[in-house]
């Protein structure tokens, strides 16, 4: 973690805590997509993911005025909140089949390629949801959220070696589930 990055983040958080509109807008632009992306891939449900992302941002507004400079990365704290909220929902969720909306034929040029891309994305997302939550979490944090291995290990409260084991197993399981898509 670069000291300059932490300092710039602390500055932004302090300005958010003071209610500066430009800082609030910057925080939303930067963090809302990140929190939504994490929740979307952890939960696989767009509505639940929006709820989690919104709740994380609300808690960020509450935390910003009392955030201690240099304490930790605010982004890491937000990830912790998001993961906790996701796991709360995963624990409450009952296994039930979710009906997917039927694909509507698109007559526009390039529709076939678009359909293939959407089908590929749908299958990858479905395969992600089939992974054990901890493997999915490791993949989400390291591959999608671009967190470093040390930061991910701290968030997951495991060693770096454990994170690497989860990543390897998750990636292998995805490769098996999506073998026909591997180019």
């Amino acid at each position: 973690m670069r000291t300059g990055d932490l300092s710039a983040e602390d500055d932004l958080v302090a300005r958010v805590g003071r209610g500066e509109p430009a800082a609030v807008q910057a925080m939303v632009a930067r963090q809302l997509p990140r929190m939504l992306a994490l929740a979307s891939r952890m939960l696989g449900d767009p509505a639940e993911a929006e709820d989690v992302a919104q709740e994380v941002m609300v808690r960020a507004w509450e935390q910003a005025p009392r955030w201690e400079r240099g304490r930790a990365r605010f982004d890491t704290w937000m990830h912790r909140v998001a993961l906790n909220l996701c796991y709360d929902r995963l624990r409450r969720r009952r296994e039930r089949p979710v009906a997917e909306p039927p694909d509507r034929p698109d007559p526009s040029p390039g529709a076939e390629a678009g359909l293939q891309a959407r089908d590929r994305a749908r299958r990858v997302n479905a395969a992600l949801q089939q992974l054990p939550p901890r493997q999915r979490e490791a993949l989400v944090l390291c591959h999608y959220q671009d967190l470093g291995n040390i930061e991910a290990a701290a968030l997951m409260e495991v060693t770096v070696e454990a994170v690497e084991s989860l990543l390897s197993r998750g990636r292998r399981a995805l490769r098996v589930a999506l073998a026909d898509l591997v180019e």
């Binding site: 939504l36 992302a53 994305a121 591959h143 995805l174 898509l181 591997v182």
Partner: peptide, 18 residues
């Protein structure tokens, strides 16, 4: 090749309502 599979999952974009 596995990276490409992972990258096929698009990033969600926050809706205007959110």
């Amino acid at each position: 090749a596995t990276d490409a599979l992972l990258d096929a999952s698009p990033r969600s974009v926050p809706s205007a309502g959110l």
